[in-house]
């Protein structure tokens, strides 16, 4: 592959990490002599964001228009109508994020660009490419081929590629100014809402006892609380537990919840979907208790117990209480 375009993701005047993760992978795929192109859509006042990007792209195509301040898919599509004709590339990368998930499938369908989503790796050989993606909540990987096409589109899972050590090149900025035209009133951005602040801030805790769907019922939460109390830690959870309101949303760990970095993270009955891992993989020590020896959580845990949490937790709590006397 010679030319790869990466769609820059930015929000609230910050370039998001996924952008750099994609740029790094793009450099690796195009190799020497290839071209990494960054596509930037934004308001002219956001031009400063380009400073972080130009060093890592051979070319930056910046579409600057006051209508592009916030992410709005209809406006983005209108901008693409003009960009696609001018960008020569074989592959376009976007993030499998709230931004990319709201845009990429529509772009693929509209321009009939061969596409697949949530890719964790990309292999290029003999000018063709294979995407690796996960199925069954991370329990199985699939190698996927794409239909032939001048361009292809992939959305990339956040965290799949490192955001560090991206080659530095001298990027040339090509500005497109001129209004994005059309009637975009069918969907309009109104505002951002920040997350509510809860009574306990799990991001500050050194010790976290986290429960997943394996806890089975709201009535069982106290066994995790008892362990957390004995250890001097706090209780957190995976998404289904917050969805069911067994614990408040601000206790949720993961991409759509909090990112935590405690000394010790104990995962009870959590399978370890990547959205959960993203929020806790940097914990000092990860201990997982799960009945299923093939649960993905054991892939990132340091220690594991393959057993019923309802037996393990009371036994552990009792021992901890014993030494604390």
């Amino acid at each position: 592959m010679e030319k790869i375009a990466v769609l820059v993701e930015h929000r609230q005047d910050e370039v998001r990490d996924i952008t750099f993760e994609m740029l790094g992978k793009a450099h690796q795929l195009v190799g020497e002599g290839g071209e990494v192109i960054a596509l930037f859509l934004g308001d002219p006042s956001q031009k400063g964001l380009l400073d972080a990007i130009t060093p890592h792209a051979h070319r930056v195509i910046a579409y600057l228009d006051t209508n592009l301040k916030n992410f709005e898919p209809l406006r983005y599509q209108a901008a693409f109508s003009q960009i696609f004709e001018n960008v020569d590339c074989q592959l376009i990368l976007m993030g499998q994020t709230a931004f990319g998930m709201d845009l990429a499938p529509a772009v693929a369908a509209k321009w009939e660009i061969p596409f697949t989503s949530d890719v964790v790796d990309i292999e290029a050989s003999d000018g063709d490419l294979m995407a690796i993606r996960q199925m069954y909540s991370g329990k199985v990987n699939a190698k996927v081929s794409l239909k032939a096409g001048d361009k292809r589109l992939l959305t990339v899972r956040a965290g799949a590629f490192p955001a560090e050590d991206i080659p530095t090149v001298s990027g040339e900025v090509q500005e497109i100014t001129g209004a994005v035209e059309g009637d975009f009133s069918a969907r309009t951005f109104v505002e951002y809402l920040e997350a509510a602040v809860g009574d306990v801030d799990i991001t500050q805790a050194d010790i976290i006892v986290s429960v997943g769907r394996g806890i089975k019922d709201a009535d069982n939460i106290p066994i995790a609380e008892e362990l957390a109390n004995a250890l001097g830690g706090v209780v957190a959870c995976s998404r289904p537990v917050a969805d069911k309101k067994w614990l408040p949303k601000e206790r949720q760990v993961g991409t759509s919840g909090k990112t935590v970095k405690p000394k010790v993270y104990i995962a009870l009955g959590i399978s370890g979907a990547f959205q959960h891992q993203a929020g806790m993989k940097n914990a000092g020590t990860i201990i997982a208790v799960n009945k299923d020896p093939k649960a993905p959580i054991f892939g990132i845990a340091h220690y594991g117990i393959v057993d019923d949490l309802f037996k393990v937790v009371p036994a552990l709590t009792e021992k901890v209480k014993g030494i604390k006397g």
Partner: peptide, 17 residues
């Protein structure tokens, strides 16, 4: 009027026809 879930607990409010 809908809320969309973004990353890290942030939400976005949009209107749709």
């Amino acid at each position: 009027t809908v809320h969309r879930e973004l990353e890290g607990g942030l939400e976005e409010v949009d209107t749709l026809k």
